[in-house]
């Protein structure tokens, strides 16, 4: 089991990681961030992607799929953005947001590692 700081640090150790944030999708506020660059404000990214998560959750609800999001992949020209809702009892209502460089990352590996981090996250 890993606490927030350790989880964020291990997410940053994923190959090609640019930044990571743990976000509350009820408010859009971040519980913790790591990495990021001068141009990328992770709190802005968190607030914006909260709407992405909410929209998808609402869609699943409207389609009566009775299912949950495992993760969301957004592919940009030079980056991958991975969104992964936290499933633990203490982490309800949160999601992990990871930005990785497309040229330096192994997508399958990044996704696998993010899952491990999410499963071990203890708040």
């Amino acid at each position: 089991m890993a606490n927030l700081d350790i989880a964020l640090k291990s997410a940053m150790s994923i190959d090609g990681a640019i930044g990571v944030a743990l976000v509350d999708y009820n408010s859009g506020m971040t519980l913790g961030v790591a990495g990021g660059t001068g141009e990328i404000d992770l709190t802005v990214a968190a607030a914006g992607n909260t709407d992405v998560v909410r929209a998808k959750m609402r869609t699943i609800e409207m389609l009566n799929l009775n299912d949950e999001i495992e993760d969301i992949l957004i592919t940009l020209g030079s980056q991958y953005h991975l969104i992964r809702p936290v499933n633990s009892r203490t982490g309800k209502g949160l999601f992990l947001y990871l930005m990785v460089s497309k040229s330096r990352a192994n997508l399958a590996m990044a996704r696998h590692q993010l899952r491990t981090i999410e499963e071990n996250l203890e708040l």
């Binding site: 408010s27 859009g28 607030a47």
Partner: peptide, 10 residues
């Protein structure tokens, strides 16, 4: 109550 407060604060 569904508002994105972080966005509001931005």
């Amino acid at each position: 109550d569904t508002i994105n407060v972080a966005r509001l604060h931005l």
